[in-house]
Amino acid sequence: MQQVQEFLRQSLKIRNLHLFFPKVIGCICAILLVIIIIQRLIRCIRTGTPFINLKGYHFFDEGCDKLKLFGSLALTIGYLIALPVLHFVNASMIFIFLFGVLFDYNREKGFSFMSVLISAIIAVAGSWLTWYLFFQIFNITLP
């Protein structure tokens, strides 16, 4: 017990203090990860299934709409890059419109004029209203 006490005394000295807890939590996470792996291993042995079975494995849901998923990811990255360059209103009008068009796109029917028009109205009105409300009235900093 005295050894533990001495170990803690050294570890919790003011110059080392910041490293002690992250190490402890990191170790707990690592142990838990090992337990999760062992649990899976036991389950696989019991059911006679392979531990790693890449055959038939799908990270994405069946029938995943990859266009909308990766499109929304690309648009998010694009929007965040554009914000400091084009500023809030301009970047938002462009990207909120693109988000609207992407999300409302129908694979069978394609683009409809009404859908694109509604996306444009939402993008312009939404961006201006948000800017006016937050920046002009409430004095909140916007990108």
Binding site: T76, Y79, L80, L83, P84, S92, F95, I96, F97, F99, G100, F103, D104, I118, S119, I122, A123, G126, S127, T130, F134, I140, T141, L142, P143
Partner: peptide, 25 residues
């Protein structure tokens, strides 16, 4: 349609995150 609401939610998310520390990208 959720497809109409999510673009606006994205807009609000950006405003909220940016305002957290008054302007840190």
């Amino acid at each position: 349609k959720s497809s109409r609401l999510y673009p606006l939610i994205m807009l609000m998310c950006v405003v909220g995150a940016y305002a957290t520390r008054s302007g840190i990208m």
